[in-house]
Design a binder for these strands. Structure first.
Lengths: 117, 117
DNA sequence: TGTAGTGTGTAGTATATACTACACACATGA
DNA sequence: TCATGTGTGTAGTATATACTACACACTACA
């Protein structure tokens, strides 16, 4: 289903080519989980871990947490909380942008960033 | 924590004033859950039910599903899926709009709706 | 040859999620 | 008075989530 495991293994091994401390064991230790658990996750024998663990993995691997969470089939609680505060507004916005091409969404992002409210 | 239960009870009793079929038992039957379960949810003795059940409640009560889900501390899988497809883009957008006033977000919604991509 | 490190296999556990089934006490109307 | 409907109390269950603990086989190096 998701390539989460493969992606993590890939990222870890890329780091490892330059830095031997990116072994399953040592990365797991840094992230705060059991090595066998990480190993199983990388081989998709276990589903992706919790949001917290994914965020620590992202940090340790220099990856974008939102992207890793997406691969894991999740959306960060931070983003969810923003939506939950104004569910109608954000619901409408997001559905509206569902099929908009990237550049159109980006334009909106920039407009809002630079824009006068 | 959340007023989900109170909100549901309120909505149900409002309907009930006009339509006797909005009893706990009958609504529960329509929604496909046990009456005692609905009763407990309304009194916050149980946490809010699953997304599916919330959506059926919304339908039966004529309420906005996104709003009920938000009260339940959830975000619909449909919206999450849209975000997951382009996590960086939507992540940035949503964070950008976190503190924007409603009218600014609405303006964006309208722009996108009417806009030429 | 032994010790340190590698990845992985086996066998669990704790907690949360999302409910069901059934019984009870009370009210209302026929 | 009794059948019907009301809300609710008690006592469970099935499944998913998110892991841990420990052992094993293999490699490399000193």
């Amino acid at each position: 289903m998701s390539n989460f495991g493969t992606y993590i293994r890939q990222a870890r091994e890329t780091h490892r080519a330059k830095d031997a401390s990116f072994s399953v064991r040592q990365l797991a230790a840094r992230v705060g989980i059991e090595p066998s658990y990480l190993s199983k996750i990388e081989r998709s024998e276990q589903p992706p871990p919790s949001q917290q663990t994914i965020e620590r993995l992202a940090e340790a691997l220099g990856e974008d947490a939102d992207v890793l969470l997406a691969l894991a089939g999740k959306v960060s609680d931070e983003l969810q909380e923003i939506i939950r505060r104004r569910p109608k507004l954000f619901g409408e916005l997001i559905r509206q942008l569902k099929d908009a091409p990237d550049h159109a969404v980006l334009r909106v992002v920039r407009e809002v960033r630079d824009g006068e409210w």
